[in-house]
Simulated assay, not measured.
Amino acid sequence: MTALNRVPSLLTRATTASALTLVAVGGGIVAPGAASEASAAAPGAKALKVAASKKGAPYRYGATGPSRFDCSGLTLYSFKKAGKTLPRTAAGQYNKTKRVKAGNRSKGDLVFFYSGRNVYHVGIYAGGGKMWHSPKTGDVVRLSKIWTKSVKYGRVR
């Protein structure tokens, strides 16, 4: 076999070895165009972790943390820690986010509850039909099942 005939074989082995090395050290292979999707999801993933870290924090109307929250106060605080600025209210946050269809929702997207045209509650989508939120007076920040289909999803940009 000549050196010229061995080039494709050597390239295949080199590419496989590089991919295996990436996987072994916790890296990944990103397809062209996928980097922008991943970077867009990063603030949501960070905000989700922040919200989960506040598990058990008491609800308090108008509170924005760090130890007490209302629903939009929790989302505002969580995204602020992730480097993003949101308006104070659930309705304001709804107006600031990019709409996402339920089938395209991702962990870290905001979940907005509405009645008619009014947005009255917000949480952070955690996957599996659940969200982190600060529900109401007398309750605490917790992971809950999304209890209605009357929700819309928004992605923080």
Rank of each mutant, 00 (worst) to 15 (best):
A3M: 14
N5A: 15
N5S: 14
R6I: 11
P8E: 12
S9Q: 15
S9V: 15
L10N: 08
L11T: 01
L11A: 13
T12N: 11
R13A: 11
R13Q: 10
A14M: 13
S18F: 14
S18N: 13
S18V: 15
A19S: 07
A19I: 12
A19K: 09
L20M: 02
T21E: 12
T21D: 12
L22F: 02
V23F: 11
A24G: 08
V25A: 13
G27Q: 08
G27A: 10
G28Q: 06
I29F: 14
I29H: 12
V30T: 08
A31Y: 02
G33L: 06
A34G: 15
A35P: 04
A35Q: 10
S36H: 05
E37F: 09
E37I: 11
E37G: 07
A38Q: 11
S39H: 02
S39T: 11
A40H: 01
A41Y: 04
A42R: 07
P43Q: 09
P43W: 07
G44R: 01
G44D: 02
A45D: 08
A45T: 14
A47W: 01
K49F: 02
V50H: 01
A51P: 01
S53K: 07
K54A: 10
K54S: 05
G56C: 06
G56S: 08
G56Y: 04
P58H: 09
R60T: 10
Y61T: 01
T64K: 05
R68N: 11
R68T: 13
D70Q: 09
S72V: 12
S72K: 09
S72L: 06
T75G: 00
L76Q: 10
Y77I: 11
F79I: 03
K81S: 04
A82P: 12
G83E: 15
G83V: 14
K84M: 13
T85L: 10
T85N: 15
T85E: 13
T85R: 14
P87D: 14
A90P: 14
G92W: 14
Q93A: 14
K96L: 11
R99E: 09
V100D: 12
A102H: 12
K107H: 05
K107G: 05
G108H: 05
D109C: 06
D109G: 06
L110Q: 11
L110V: 11
L110Y: 14
V111K: 02
F112M: 08
S115Q: 13
S115N: 15
G116C: 02
G116D: 03
R117L: 07
N118G: 02
V119S: 10
V122Y: 12
G123C: 08
I124T: 07
Y125L: 05
A126Q: 00
A126M: 03
G128R: 00
G128E: 00
K130S: 01
M131V: 02
W132H: 02
W132C: 00
H133N: 12
S134G: 03
S134H: 00
P135G: 04
P135H: 01
K136D: 00
G138Y: 06
D139T: 05
V140H: 09
V141K: 00
L143F: 02
T148Q: 05
K149L: 02
S150E: 05
S150W: 03
K152D: 05
Y153T: 01
